[in-house]
Protein backbone atom coordinates (compact mmCIF):
# COMPACT_ATOMS: atom_id res chain seq x y z
CA UNK A 1 0.00 0.00 0.00
CA UNK A 2 2.13 2.90 1.17
CA UNK A 3 5.23 0.90 0.35
CA UNK A 4 4.21 0.51 -3.24
CA UNK A 5 7.39 1.46 -5.02
CA UNK A 6 7.47 -1.03 -7.86
CA UNK A 7 5.29 -0.90 -10.86
CA UNK A 8 2.16 -2.88 -10.07
CA UNK A 9 3.47 -4.52 -6.95
CA UNK A 10 4.86 -4.11 -3.49
CA UNK A 11 8.40 -4.08 -2.18
CA UNK A 12 10.87 -6.91 -2.59
CA UNK A 13 10.34 -8.28 0.91
CA UNK A 14 6.62 -8.63 0.44
CA UNK A 15 7.05 -10.27 -2.93
CA UNK A 16 9.60 -12.76 -1.65
CA UNK A 17 7.46 -13.73 1.32
CA UNK A 18 4.47 -14.05 -0.98
CA UNK A 19 6.38 -16.34 -3.29
CA UNK A 20 7.05 -18.66 -0.36
CA UNK A 21 3.66 -18.39 1.27
CA UNK A 22 1.24 -18.55 -1.61
CA UNK A 23 1.50 -22.32 -2.10
CA UNK A 24 0.90 -22.97 1.59
CA UNK A 25 -2.10 -20.68 1.73
CA UNK A 26 -3.56 -22.39 -1.33
CA UNK A 27 -2.87 -25.79 0.20
CA UNK A 28 -4.54 -24.78 3.43
CA UNK A 29 -7.55 -23.50 1.54
CA UNK A 30 -7.89 -26.74 -0.38
CA UNK A 31 -7.49 -28.70 2.85
CA UNK A 32 -10.25 -26.68 4.52
CA UNK A 33 -12.52 -27.27 1.54
CA UNK A 34 -11.89 -31.00 1.36
CA UNK A 35 -12.04 -31.77 5.07
CA UNK A 36 -15.01 -29.60 5.92
CA UNK A 37 -17.14 -32.66 6.57
CA UNK A 38 -15.06 -34.10 9.38
CA UNK A 39 -13.63 -30.95 10.91
CA UNK A 40 -14.60 -27.29 11.09
CA UNK A 41 -14.39 -25.54 7.79
CA UNK A 42 -15.99 -26.34 4.50
CA UNK A 43 -16.57 -24.85 1.13
CA UNK A 44 -17.35 -21.33 2.27
CA UNK A 45 -14.37 -20.85 4.58
CA UNK A 46 -11.97 -22.69 2.31
CA UNK A 47 -13.15 -20.78 -0.72
CA UNK A 48 -12.44 -17.50 1.00
CA UNK A 49 -8.95 -18.74 1.96
CA UNK A 50 -8.23 -19.63 -1.67
CA UNK A 51 -9.51 -16.25 -2.77
CA UNK A 52 -7.21 -14.66 -0.17
CA UNK A 53 -4.22 -16.49 -1.67
CA UNK A 54 -4.89 -15.01 -5.09
CA UNK A 55 -5.62 -11.61 -3.64
CA UNK A 56 -2.31 -11.65 -1.78
CA UNK A 57 -0.68 -12.47 -5.09
CA UNK A 58 -2.49 -9.59 -6.76
CA UNK A 59 -1.48 -7.15 -4.05
CA UNK A 60 2.15 -8.22 -3.94
CA UNK A 61 2.94 -8.96 -7.55
CA UNK A 62 0.56 -6.75 -9.41
CA UNK A 63 -2.32 -7.58 -11.66
CA UNK A 64 -0.36 -8.51 -14.75
CA UNK A 65 1.63 -11.28 -13.08
CA UNK A 66 -1.49 -12.67 -11.41
CA UNK A 67 -3.43 -12.61 -14.65
CA UNK A 68 -0.92 -15.04 -16.08
CA UNK A 69 -1.88 -17.55 -13.39
CA UNK A 70 -5.56 -16.81 -13.19
CA UNK A 71 -7.09 -14.34 -15.58
CA UNK A 72 -10.40 -12.71 -14.81
CA UNK A 73 -12.02 -14.49 -17.71
CA UNK A 74 -10.87 -17.85 -16.40
CA UNK A 75 -12.11 -16.96 -12.93
CA UNK A 76 -15.53 -16.05 -14.29
CA UNK A 77 -15.69 -19.26 -16.31
CA UNK A 78 -14.70 -21.30 -13.27
CA UNK A 79 -17.30 -19.60 -11.09
CA UNK A 80 -20.04 -20.37 -13.58
CA UNK A 81 -18.71 -23.91 -13.98
CA UNK A 82 -18.81 -24.39 -10.21
CA UNK A 83 -22.40 -23.27 -10.06
CA UNK A 84 -23.38 -25.53 -12.94
CA UNK A 85 -21.50 -28.38 -11.31
CA UNK A 86 -23.49 -27.90 -8.11
CA UNK A 87 -26.69 -27.87 -10.14
CA UNK A 88 -25.56 -30.92 -12.07
CA UNK A 89 -24.89 -32.83 -8.88
CA UNK A 90 -28.38 -31.92 -7.75
CA UNK A 91 -29.92 -33.01 -11.03
CA UNK A 92 -27.92 -36.23 -11.07
CA UNK A 93 -29.67 -37.15 -7.84
CA UNK A 94 -32.98 -37.03 -9.70
CA UNK A 95 -31.99 -39.73 -12.19
CA UNK A 96 -33.20 -42.75 -10.27
CA UNK A 97 -36.52 -41.18 -9.42
CA UNK A 98 -35.11 -39.56 -6.30
CA UNK A 99 -35.44 -36.00 -5.13
CA UNK A 100 -33.42 -33.02 -6.29
CA UNK A 101 -30.08 -32.89 -4.47
CA UNK A 102 -30.66 -36.30 -2.98
CA UNK A 103 -27.53 -37.81 -1.54
CA UNK A 104 -27.26 -40.72 -3.92
CA UNK A 105 -23.60 -41.52 -3.36
CA UNK A 106 -23.56 -42.01 0.37
CA UNK A 107 -22.09 -45.33 1.40
CA UNK A 108 -22.65 -47.43 4.48
CA UNK A 109 -23.18 -45.24 7.46
CA UNK A 110 -21.08 -47.19 9.92
CA UNK A 111 -17.86 -46.59 8.03
CA UNK A 112 -15.07 -44.47 9.37
CA UNK A 113 -15.33 -40.89 8.18
CA UNK A 114 -13.11 -40.63 5.16
CA UNK A 115 -12.76 -38.25 2.25
CA UNK A 116 -15.52 -39.94 0.25
CA UNK A 117 -17.82 -40.86 3.11
CA UNK A 118 -20.10 -37.92 2.55
CA UNK A 119 -21.35 -38.87 -0.90
CA UNK A 120 -22.40 -35.77 -2.77
CA UNK A 121 -21.45 -33.58 0.18
CA UNK A 122 -17.84 -33.72 -0.90
CA UNK A 123 -18.73 -32.76 -4.47
CA UNK A 124 -20.90 -29.92 -3.25
CA UNK A 125 -18.11 -28.68 -0.98
CA UNK A 126 -15.76 -28.54 -3.93
CA UNK A 127 -18.36 -26.78 -6.06
CA UNK A 128 -19.00 -24.20 -3.33
CA UNK A 129 -15.28 -23.72 -2.80
CA UNK A 130 -14.85 -22.94 -6.50
CA UNK A 131 -17.85 -20.61 -6.61
CA UNK A 132 -16.85 -18.66 -3.52
CA UNK A 133 -13.15 -18.37 -4.29
CA UNK A 134 -13.55 -17.41 -7.92
CA UNK A 135 -16.43 -15.01 -7.32
CA UNK A 136 -14.63 -13.15 -4.56
CA UNK A 137 -11.37 -13.04 -6.48
CA UNK A 138 -13.28 -11.66 -9.43
CA UNK A 139 -14.91 -8.99 -7.29
CA UNK A 140 -11.57 -7.96 -5.88
CA UNK A 141 -9.86 -7.98 -9.26
CA UNK A 142 -12.50 -5.71 -10.75
CA UNK A 143 -12.41 -3.36 -7.78
CA UNK A 144 -8.63 -3.08 -7.86
CA UNK A 145 -8.56 -2.49 -11.60
CA UNK A 146 -11.00 0.30 -11.11
CA UNK A 147 -8.88 1.93 -8.43
CA UNK A 148 -5.82 1.95 -10.63
CA UNK A 149 -7.59 3.51 -13.58
CA UNK A 150 -9.34 6.01 -11.36
CA UNK A 151 -6.01 7.02 -9.88
CA UNK A 152 -4.77 7.77 -13.38
CA UNK A 153 -7.66 9.92 -14.34
CA UNK A 154 -8.36 11.56 -11.03
CA UNK A 155 -5.01 12.54 -9.60
CA UNK A 156 -2.97 14.08 -12.35
CA UNK A 157 0.35 14.23 -10.50
CA UNK A 158 0.48 10.65 -9.31
CA UNK A 159 3.74 9.91 -11.04
CA UNK A 160 3.15 6.20 -11.44
CA UNK A 161 -0.44 5.23 -11.69
CA UNK A 162 -0.24 1.51 -11.15
CA UNK A 163 1.52 1.58 -7.75
CA UNK A 164 0.28 -1.25 -5.60
Amino acid sequence: MSGGTHQGGMSLIVRTVTRWLKAFILLFGIYVVLYGHVSPGGGFAGGVVIACAYILLTLAEGRERTARLLSERLAAVLAVAGLLFFLGVGLAGMVGGRAFLDNFLVGDSGAEPALASGGIIELCEIAIGIIVSMSLFLAFAVLSRFRVSLGDGDETATGEGGAS
Binding site: H37, G42, G90, N103, P113, I120, I121, E125
Partner: peptide, 17 residues
Protein backbone atom coordinates in the same frame (compact mmCIF):
# COMPACT_ATOMS: atom_id res chain seq x y z
CA UNK B 1 -27.72 -40.64 6.87
CA UNK B 2 -24.92 -38.58 5.40
CA UNK B 3 -21.72 -40.19 6.62
CA UNK B 4 -20.43 -36.84 7.78
CA UNK B 5 -19.28 -36.08 11.32
CA UNK B 6 -19.53 -32.32 11.16
CA UNK B 7 -23.26 -31.85 11.64
CA UNK B 8 -23.17 -28.25 10.41
CA UNK B 9 -21.86 -29.47 7.09
CA UNK B 10 -24.46 -32.23 7.06
CA UNK B 11 -27.24 -29.68 7.47
CA UNK B 12 -25.67 -27.27 5.03
CA UNK B 13 -25.11 -29.68 2.18
CA UNK B 14 -27.48 -32.56 2.70
CA UNK B 15 -30.58 -31.79 4.74
CA UNK B 16 -30.78 -28.24 3.48
CA UNK B 17 -28.71 -28.36 0.34
Amino acid sequence: QTGVTNIVTAILLDFRA
